[in-house]
Computed example of a mutant assay.
Amino acid sequence: MNHDVFIRIGVFAGVFAALAALEVLAPRRDAALPRVERWPGATAIFVAGAALGRLVLPAGLAGIALFADQIGFGLFNLISAPVWLVGLAAFVLLDLSVWGQHVLMHRVPILWRMHRVHHSDPHIDVMTALRFHPAEILVSLVWKGAVVFLFGIPAWAAFFFEVALNAFAQFNHANWHISPAVDRVLRWLVVTPDMHRVHHSVERREANRNFGFCLSVWDRMFRVYKDQPDAGHRDMLIGQHDWRSSGDQTPAELLVQPLKTPPS
């Protein structure tokens, strides 16, 4: 784990650059606002959230995992199983926990106010994957940290999941046109951009569907899966009915948005 920062940054930067390029070469939708009006604010709160997370948990989830291992706490520290099975079980468990957290962010009013910053983006692209309020980042860290500790998930598995989750989030937010035939096959296992885009609809009946980030099975299992948006991917309205102007995308406005009540 000595080089964890370099691995995180390397994977993040590589995935981000590749998807940003694909969005230019093969975009799925036209942007409601140009990047120059959306990306600076999202970048600012992403940096603030990353700094807060590093301050609260310098070693990330792996640090919590190492502590649980030292005191012999948690299910995985009490059983003996093949490494591949432990890794697979840990990934599935953490992915389910993130899915459950995401549902709560929509269901609990105070949590929705934080999460609404993510959904108030009037367009969806790779940068939207990073657009989370710092308060939500903190809530997410506590939630995932509790799961890692209670189940004694190994440090290497927790680290791998963090890196994979970041990459998957960028992938399924990307404004990238993927062949419908390829999309149909992929979404049986993972969340695709077309699948997740439904979740960013202004229509609540659609925004409360397709909560997954990595594995697509949970939405089908818990019957909140929606195949396509009613208006189609090119015509659907993304985001919220409010906070759609360029002035709503500044760092200051994004930071204080959870304190505001929607005008409409």
Rank of each mutant, 00 (worst) to 15 (best):
S179V: 00
A169C: 04
F160S: 15
R197H: 15
H173A: 14
R187A: 01
A169F: 02
N172G: 06
H173G: 09
S179C: 07
Q170I: 13
N172M: 11
V182N: 00
V185S: 05
V190R: 10
A174L: 12
H177I: 01
R184H: 08
W176Y: 06
A167G: 08
H173I: 10
F161D: 03
L165C: 02
P193E: 12
H173D: 12
T192P: 13
R187W: 04
F161S: 05
D194A: 13
S179L: 03
V163N: 09
A167P: 06
L186Q: 05
R187I: 03
A174F: 09
R187N: 04
V190W: 13
I178A: 05
A174E: 10
R197M: 11
L186G: 03
V191N: 02
R187T: 07
P180R: 11
M195E: 06
A164C: 11
A181S: 15
D183V: 00
W176M: 05
F161P: 00
Q170M: 15
V191G: 03
I178Y: 02
F161A: 06
F171D: 08
F160M: 15
N166C: 10
D183N: 12
H177F: 10
I178E: 00
N166L: 12
F171M: 15
D194W: 04
A174H: 10
A164Q: 12
W188H: 14
D194I: 03
H177Y: 09
D194R: 15
A167N: 07
V185G: 02
L186S: 05
F171K: 13
V190A: 10
E162T: 09
A164H: 12
A181R: 15
F171V: 13
D194C: 08
E162Y: 01
R197C: 02
N172V: 05
W188S: 00
L189Q: 04
V185E: 00
N175L: 12
A164P: 07
H196C: 01
L189F: 14
N175Y: 11
S179T: 02
F171Q: 06
L165P: 06
R184E: 14
V185Q: 00
V191K: 06
A167K: 12
W176T: 05
L165E: 02
D183I: 00
N166F: 05
V191Y: 03
N166Q: 13
H196T: 02
H173R: 11
T192E: 12
V163E: 07
P180A: 13
D194T: 07
R197W: 02
W188D: 00
N172D: 14
N166W: 04
N172F: 13
N175G: 11
E162S: 14
F171E: 07
I178T: 04
F160I: 07
E162M: 13
V191F: 06
V191L: 09
F160E: 10
R184Q: 12
A169H: 07
R184A: 15
T192R: 13
P193Y: 11
D183S: 06
L165K: 06
A164M: 14
Q170R: 12
L189P: 04
I178G: 04
P193N: 08
E162L: 08
A174M: 06
P180D: 11
R184V: 03
V182I: 15
